[in-house]
């Protein structure tokens, strides 16, 4: 892996977090935006993925996507497509790429990139409205994204 200044800084901040994984700036996207290798180097945990999907301070995916099996969670959004059955018509590589940076799969999409740390206009310090204090962290960690992929793969039609 070619260590750029950015990944060096990220590695310093995150300690060993990327030791077996891939830093946001180093993710290799395929022709259709898919990402082949696990971002964390570890398998995903679908139960935690469900939590990331539905928790406001984490992925908050449910603010834009409805999923009928999440019927215990109130208020599913309509900005993105419903994701029932997405685990059947999308594979892990595609799902990983879409969650990490959906713009690589859907050009110009309103879906935010959850594993990206540069190239923003006026990024802030989370939801404070203030300027960031240091380098930006991705919205979700590599492991959160692997967990989301595992959760999305459980969404089968029947």
């Amino acid at each position: 892996m070619r260590l750029t200044a950015i990944t060096m800084a990220a590695t310093l901040i995150a300690g060993t977090a990327f030791a077996d994984g891939v830093a946001p700036g180093e993710v290799q996207y395929g022709e259709y935006g898919e990402v082949a290798a696990s971002l964390s180097g570890a398998p995903g945990d679908a139960a935690n993925g469900r939590k990331v999907f539905t928790t406001k301070s984490m992925g908050n995916c449910v603010s834009c996507h409805a999923v009928s099996s999440l019927d215990d969670v109130p208020f599913h959004g309509e900005v993105g497509p419903a994701l029932d059955g997405v685990g059947e018509y999308r594979n892990a590589e595609e799902l990983r790429g879409i969650v990490a940076n959906a713009k690589m799969t859907f050009e110009g999409t309103v879906m935010p990139a959850f594993y990206k740390t540069s190239g923003f206009i006026r990024p802030g310090d989370g939801y404070t409205g203030k300027a960031p204090k240091g380098d930006l962290a991705p919205i979700l960690s590599a492991q959160d994204i692997e967990d989301l992929v595992a959760f999305l793969l459980t969404l089968k039609e029947s």
Partner: peptide, 24 residues
């Protein structure tokens, strides 16, 4: 202009998606 780490513009919410729910 699509601002912030979510890269959303006014138009993304109020032109492309008015009428839709975003969460509640």
């Amino acid at each position: 202009t699509r601002t912030g780490q979510l890269e959303l513009s006014c138009a993304n919410c109020h032109e492309d998606n008015y009428g839709n729910y975003i969460r509640a």
